[in-house]
Amino acid sequence: MEAKLEPIVKALQAKFGGSFEEFRGEVHYFVQPAQIVEALTLLRDQHQFELLSAQTAVDYWPQTSPRFHVIYQLSSLAQNITFQLRVPVNGDSPTVPTAAGVFDSANWRERELLDMFGIQFEGHPDPRRILMPEDSDGHPLRKDYPLGYEEPQFTFNFEDIDLRKPYAKE
């Protein structure tokens, strides 16, 4: 582990317990949903992580507990390091406290996660869908959501598919 990351991991472990993983020099630290706001505040205020570089999620369906990992990728400009927090969330009514109070950019990112994964962010100031139409249902990036693949047309099946296509009228 990079020397600069060690005190951070120590500080987090002292405060929240929890474990971490390391891969190719990147540290992924696991915290519980209830602790995330506190952990982000700690990292921002005491370890100079000014930038929430990315916030995303991974769906591990069909596994259900935890089904999702919400990922917070932090960057420190002053120390020039990155750090990743991971929050495991269960599959039935996934809920995480919002980080919009800590980083403004979390506002839109959490709307995206709500839209794409259906993860609820408690206390979010503006919980609307962001990318998909308001009236759509389902959450596309979940693994149980179909890709919505349309069969390509070849000579042998051209007619069949053409008949099914909803061509527009004048």
Binding site: F23, R24, E26, H28, S53, A54, T56, V58, I71, Q73, S75, T82, Q84
Partner: peptide, 20 residues
């Protein structure tokens, strides 16, 4: 079976890729 995050400077800013 692991995940990484890597970023480059695009004309608009940090273009990062999270890959698992």
């Amino acid at each position: 079976k692991a995940s990484i995050y890597s970023a480059v400077e695009s004309p608009r800013g940090e273009l990062g890729v999270f890959l698992e």
